[in-house]
């Protein structure tokens, strides 16, 4: 059974995460998204200035509340501002 939460980033967010996905330990009951992001910035300080402009997806669904509960086995994806076209 998963004990971690996977975090993926694209473009500048991937660079700030160290170049690839990260696995963060999580308690079985999960934790608040806001708390998870704080732990992430502690590990990857370069992410701090980027986060306010990122869209955050939980299991491919856009989430806007830092109160959202994230559980082991979940995946968080960080989208910096888009630049397609």
């Amino acid at each position: 059974m998963a004990r971690t939460i996977r975090v993926r980033g694209f473009a500048t967010a991937r660079t700030a995460l160290g170049g690839g996905p990260r696995e963060l330990p999580a308690p079985p009951e999960g934790l608040r998204l806001g708390r998870l992001l704080e732990a992430l910035v502690d590990e990857c300080p370069g992410l701090g200035p980027l986060l306010p402009s990122c869209r955050i997806f939980l299991n491919e669904q856009l989430t806007r509340s830092k109160e959202t509960r994230v559980r082991p086995g979940d995946e968080i994806t960080l989208h910096p501002p888009y630049s397609g076209g």
Partner: peptide
């Protein structure tokens, strides 16, 4: 598309 599609260059 430029504003809402998750694409980066």
């Amino acid at each position: 598309l430029k504003r809402r599609s998750p694409i980066w260059k």
